[in-house]
Design a protein around this nucleic acid. Structure first.
Lengths: 230, 230
DNA sequence: ATTTGTGAAACGTTTCACAGCG
DNA sequence: CGCTGTGAAACGTTTCACAAAT
């Protein structure tokens, strides 16, 4: 086991790990187009990063390329999936079955991925007992810890209002959850060793308006700046 | 104008800009709790970053604190909002009115923010003419460029299937869009000067499974580690 | 002729640590 | 005294550039 891995004890930067899913995405797209082999340069074009970065990132995990040739696409896809451990199924617990939670539960993007929402929880009595589009019944929030532990679920999605997010997180943690995807706009407190990633569209949008010049809403009569020249 | 700003021509790192919305979030939470003043240390605790980072980040924009005292919360909130230009309203065009698009259109998180979805587009004839929960009528995808330009909309949200994402992006760009929030799992190609941020839950989840040990689904019979350990 | 994998350099970001101010 | 703002150091990440492989 663990053959060929460079420098066994060197920690792999999280930023590299975060890029691997993007590489996988690009590689699968290429596969769909029938591409069987690709150079770091062409892959870089596809994905929007530099070739050196791809080569460096992959070098943390082994040697996947052939000089003069590039990478074998199917092999590399498999390798990346193995590294990310998405070559198996992961059951996920969703907490919150409001507008957002329902959209997540129905999301068709999960099917082709390795994730499956296998438990749904909510606190509202009239949502408990409802069934998602994929046939999962909504259960009581109070049962999170017990049911998550019993089912061996290790990843959770928090999709409740901000003021309830920490509460349900604590329940998930009690159930032994090790990774959380957080849709609530608050910083969750979790113990060491538990992973949290955030999805916050508003924050992303706010970080873009910074770059938009104060006044040049492209008017119906063309850009004033263009006309004025300066 | 532009008084007090340190080193007028020093570029501000994007990573700093991305953190400002998180600072704002934390500060507003503190305000809601009636907190009127706060030190970088306490704010750091609230937000989950280091105090030095907060001080360094803010120093890019001016001097907002008082030695020995800390920051005035209302003043700092206002300052951050001004910096991000979210002290005004931004109209946003949403493309895609499927499950995801509808959830975004209905999302209650927009209301208290500075963003308003003021136009919605879809290509499906039976979705065109539908009206969102906030009363916005779905229009034909073919009209994106014209209508976006006419309304002076500068930010767009892409919520269509991956294989249509680049097409609708090109239409948005034709309409003069300068910033895009992309929910489709593809890397969008945009010209220099146009901003894109991605939301990709699957990629985030895949970047967490990497860290989960291959086998320790917490079994139904309690944690062996707990029993054996102490 | 191409393209990888990787030392070494360049560049970017965070943290330290403290002078100086309130 | 407490706390900010910030040089300087430490640390992390990306890019350069080329020897080696085919």
């Amino acid at each position: 086991m663990e053959r060929d891995l460079p420098d066994r004890d060197q920690a792999i930067p999280d930023i590299v790990i975060r890029r691997l899913p993007i590489y996988r995405r690009g590689l699968r797209h290429l596969l769909d187009e029938g591409r069987l082999t690709i150079s770091s340069n062409d892959l870089a074009d596809e994905i929007g990063v530099t070739a050196a970065q791809i080569r460096r990132d992959l070098s943390y995990f082994g040697r996947f390329g052939k000089q003069g040739k590039g990478y074998d696409v199917p092999t590399l896809v498999d390798a990346v999936q193995q590294i990310l451990k998405i070559d198996r199924r992961w059951d996920v617990a969703l907490v919150g079955f409001g507008h957002l939670g329902q959209a997540i539960a129905d999301y068709r993007g999960f099917e082709p991925s390795s994730f499956r929402i296998s438990a749904i929880f909510d606190r509202s009595p009239n949502r408990i007992g409802q069934v998602s589009a994929h046939g999962v019944e909504v259960q009581a929030e109070g049962d999170i810890a017990t049911l998550v532990r019993r089912a061996g679920i290790r990843m959770g999605i928090v999709a409740v209002p901000a003021d309830q997010a920490q509460e349900v997180t604590d329940l998930l943690l009690e159930g032994g959850i090790e990774a959380i995807l957080n849709y609530a706009p608050v910083t969750l407190r979790v113990p060491e060793g538990v992973w949290v990633r955030e999805i916050d569209p508003i924050s992303l949008m706010q970080s873009m308006t910074f770059y938009l010049d104060a006044d040049d809403p492209p008017g119906r009569s063309g850009s004033i700046a263009d006309v004025a020249g300066a």
